[in-house]
């Protein structure tokens, strides 16, 4: 199949390229771990001060949540909006637009290469964090099985959402603010500050209605075994619906964006 052959070639080139920047990749990965570990330490301190339990979350549950959150964040992260802005403003996108392959595919491969390259080290680090903080996992086999489609849907959703934001670069010279706004929103509603279950009722309702929790929080809860089978089904449906909406939105914006592209400097 043609696309498979293209992906194989791109992945090979991607790994060769990444080999030049192994240290940088590892530093990025370790940098991404710092924040959840800080939150983990803070929540454990609070939980201990309150007798070891906050809203049903014990110290070991917090540890499991943040270890899973770090793992999921790493698997779902997307950074293409930063690069895309640069490519548009420098005219570097032109070379990609002149080839019979949608520029989105190059990002998919970059994304995969980074994740596959950093995953083994991340795994070791997370096992150590898990042991150090006494994480308690309530995960059963069916959680693991459900986690696989859920994390793939989450990664696709976050990736496509990032592309929608990236595409704004066709009109705005600087769209980093839009990306920062997205990151902050993600921070609040995806469950990065705290598990959504610990938030006030209205904030929980908003979080479940928006797409952000489905990008990180939902697969995290599945992986740590914090949801029932019925909830898993709802999560998978929610993720699929949001992915479909985001994909349609992307197609619509992309078609208009490419018409607005002025190919400056290239």
């Amino acid at each position: 199949m043609t696309l498979a052959r293209i992906y194989r070639a791109l992945l090979l080139a991607g790994f060769q390229q990444a080999a030049q920047y192994r240290i940088q990749s590892l530093l990025w990965m370790l940098f991404a771990i710092i924040r959840p570990v800080i939150f983990l330490a803070a929540w454990i301190a609070v939980a201990v001060a309150q007798g070891g339990d906050i809203g049903g979350f014990k110290v070991g549950d917090f540890a499991a949540y943040y270890v899973c959150m770090t793992f999921v964040s790493q698997l779902t992260m997307a950074w293409n909006s930063h690069e895309f802005e640069w490519e548009v403003n420098q005219g570097r996108l032109s070379a990609k637009l002149l080839r019979p392959l949608h520029p989105l595919h190059y990002s998919v491969v970059e994304n995969l290469v980074f994740k596959l390259n950093t995953l083994p080290v991340l795994g070791v680090v997370l096992i150590l964090v898990s042991i150090s903080f006494g994480a308690i996992y309530r995960t059963q086999v069916w959680h693991i099985i459900a986690f696989i489609p859920s994390v793939i849907l989450a990664a696709a959703l976050l990736f496509m959402f990032n592309w929608v934001i990236a595409t704004l670069a066709f009109w705005a010279t600087r769209m980093r603010t839009a990306n920062t706004l997205f990151q902050r929103t993600l921070f609040i509603f995806a469950g990065q500050i705290a598990p959504i279950g610990l938030m006030p009722g209205w904030l929980q309702a908003v979080s479940y209605a928006l797409p952000f929790w489905y990008m990180m929080g939902a697969p995290t809860e599945i992986l740590r075994g914090g949801v029932t089978q019925e909830q898993v089904a709802q999560i998978l449906i929610g993720q699929s619906v949001w992915l479909a909406i985001t994909f349609v939105a992307f197609q619509w914006i992309w078609r208009r964006g490419v018409r607005a592209y002025s190919a400056v400097g290239a």
Partner: peptide
Amino acid sequence: MGNRTQLVWDIPAADSFLVLKEIFQ
């Protein structure tokens, strides 16, 4: 376009060519 690169900087051109081979079928 003169002075504009479409090749991947960090790998030999021969490897970029193999990618183009697949993209252009």
